[in-house]
């Protein structure tokens, strides 16, 4: 069987998951210029990993693993020498100029609320919002289904609170 060219596979994958990947990037990084950097890092990582994809997991699991892993690397590295985004959220509950820009660029208040969750909770709720079943969320994150359920419940409670605060 002849594999389709990498470029075609990549374009098809982007068509299927591009929106989801952008939402992952948006929930990890609210600043537009940094979000674009993160998106590029994810694209590059997928481009590099795609030729090695042999179907050990579903394509969706494969893509979400890469997106979340790259996003984590991005946030571990980005704050060096600067004030962290989480710290800004923690110390100042007022809407900041970036948050205002985000709202003005038609992004949802839900994205802002999700991006304020602690990372382990943010990860599960993002995947749940993408309609992944708990088994698949577990496969992406490497945790048990039971653990997924617990985290989703906690994330929903916090999300409800966050949305209440931003209404």
């Amino acid at each position: 069987m002849q594999l389709e060219p990498l470029e075609q596979r990549y374009a098809r994958l982007w068509e299927m998951f591009g929106a989801s990947i952008s939402r992952v990037a948006g929930a990890y990084e609210s600043r537009p210029e940094l979000r674009e950097d993160l998106l590029q890092e994810i694209r590059l990582a997928i481009w590099i990993a795609l030729p090695k994809f042999r179907g050990d997991s579903s394509l969706r699991t494969f893509v979400f693993r890469i997106a979340h892993n790259r996003a984590l690397t991005h946030i571990w590295r980005r704050k060096r020498g600067g004030k962290s985004e989480e710290a800004e959220h923690l110390h100042d509950a007022r809407p900041n100029p970036e948050a205002t820009v985000i709202q003005h660029t038609n992004e949802s208040r839900l994205m802002t609320a999700v991006s304020q969750l602690p990372i382990p909770l943010r990860q599960v709720i993002m995947l749940a919002l993408e309609e992944l079943p708990y088994t698949e969320i577990g496969a992406v994150l490497g945790i048990s289904e039971g653990n997924v359920a617990v985290r989703v419940n906690r994330a929903r409670k916090l999300l409800r609170e966050n949305l209440g605060g931003t209404r």
Partner: peptide, 19 residues
């Protein structure tokens, strides 16, 4: 609400160039 948030469309060519 979550699904409304969509990315900028990108062509395969742009993606290849970026990568």
């Amino acid at each position: 609400e979550w699904r409304v948030i969509a990315p900028e469309p990108q062509t395969a060519d742009q993606l290849r160039r970026l990568a």
